[in-house]
């Protein structure tokens, strides 16, 4: 029985991966675009999850994505650096800013941290707005191009999608490894009972900061990935509006495992497309879905899957620490 389930799982994964690879060829141009942004957003929510692992909900994640995006844009415009260099440098810059911010921010917890991270993020974003040189003010920057290798033009959605898929998969794999490592275990511990973790020698400040830096690093990469395709960047792309979308994806998807946020972003993106016809009413529909899911599905969409497994008797442990 167990072997069969295992086999089925492996087959499912292979079909899923093959599907991801052939998918763009069957989509219209508009949906190919969307697929690329969805891929980037998967990295955004997965990296947000590592920040929330310690139990702190930050409101600066969207701005950190902007830090990465602006870094990539400026590097490209001023030094003509190719995407291969801007991606890691964007991540590095976001990680560095996060490291600097963690000194003031992690003196706070919970409500104070939420508000503090919001304030710090807004201050950064308003700085982009205020200074035309080098950030382009509220109009932002444009003309950021994707790379060309030989005859492959990454301006085309399909090659760029493969590039994004590759980068995001690699990042997700690393995030997954971190969560399953002893660092991930300790992050969980800091979340559930910080004083207990402290009392046996865990430096909770360091772990909180570490999670924040890792999350920012990867969302910085996501920002660079998005901006190289989009070509233009403005401060408003990374405002509280986008931050709210990140929160919605994570919360509607569920945040007990790494799959929850990913399910959330995929399902809600599809949902968002299907209500496109409602035009300006869309945010209200989003708001309604958000409230309904909080009230009736507090553990998120992933809990449906877990319940389904339990019903089928396959069950298994819903806790997500590393296997003993």
């Amino acid at each position: 029985m167990k072997i069969i389930i295992r086999l089925l799982k492996i087959i499912a994964v292979i079909i899923f991966l093959a599907g991801l690879i052939v998918l763009p060829h069957y989509l219209k141009f508009h949906y190919q675009d969307l697929l690329i942004f969805l891929t980037v957003n998967v990295l955004v929510v997965a990296s947000y999850r590592i920040v929330t692992l310690t139990g702190e909900w930050s409101l600066i994640h969207a701005v950190m994505m902007g830090v990465g995006a602006y870094t990539a844009a400026l590097l490209f415009k001023n030094f003509n650096l190719a995407i291969w260099f801007t991606l890691p440098l964007a991540g590095g810059m976001a990680g560095l800013i996060a490291a600097l911010l963690s000194f003031p921010l992690f003196r706070m917890t919970q409500f104070y941290f939420l508000i503090g991270s919001f304030a710090a993020g807004e201050a950064i974003r308003l700085t982009w707005m205020q200074f035309i040189v080098p950030f382009g003010g509220s109009g932002g920057l444009s003309g950021i191009e994707p790379p060309m290798i030989g005859s492959i033009d990454f301006m085309d959605p399909i090659p760029y999608y493969y590039l994004a898929l590759g980068v995001v998969s690699a990042c997700l794999f690393i995030l997954y490894r971190i969560e399953k490592s002893r660092i991930g275990l300790t992050l969980h511990a800091v979340h559930w009972k910080a004083p207990l973790a402290q009392s046996v020698g865990v430096d909770t400040w360091r772990y909180r900061a570490l999670a924040f830096i890792i999350g920012s690093f990867f969302v910085g990469i996501a920002g660079a990935l998005k901006i190289h395709y989009l070509g233009t960047i403005t401060p408003n792309q990374f405002g509280i509006g986008f931050m709210v979308f990140i929160l919605i994806w994570v919360i509607v998807g569920g945040y007990n495992t790494i799959f929850g946020p990913v399910i959330g972003v995929v399902v809600l993106t599809i949902f968002d497309e299907s209500v496109r016809g409602f035009g300006e009413l869309r945010p209200a529909i989003y708001g309604g879905v958000l409230i309904i899911s909080i009230l009736f599905l507090p553990l998120g969409l992933e809990s449906i899957y877990t319940k389904f497994l339990t019903l089928c008797g396959i069950g298994g442990n819903s806790s997500d620490g590393p296997p003993p």
Binding site: F111, L247, G287, L290, L295
Partner: peptide, 23 residues
């Protein structure tokens, strides 16, 4: 209904924010 989970309350208020803006 969400008084045990302050985060849920916050998220609900964000939902209201969207609805009122659209209104």
């Amino acid at each position: 209904p969400t008084c045990n989970d302050p985060l849920a309350g916050l998220i609900c208020s964000i939902g209201i924010l969207f609805i009122l803006q659209v209104l």
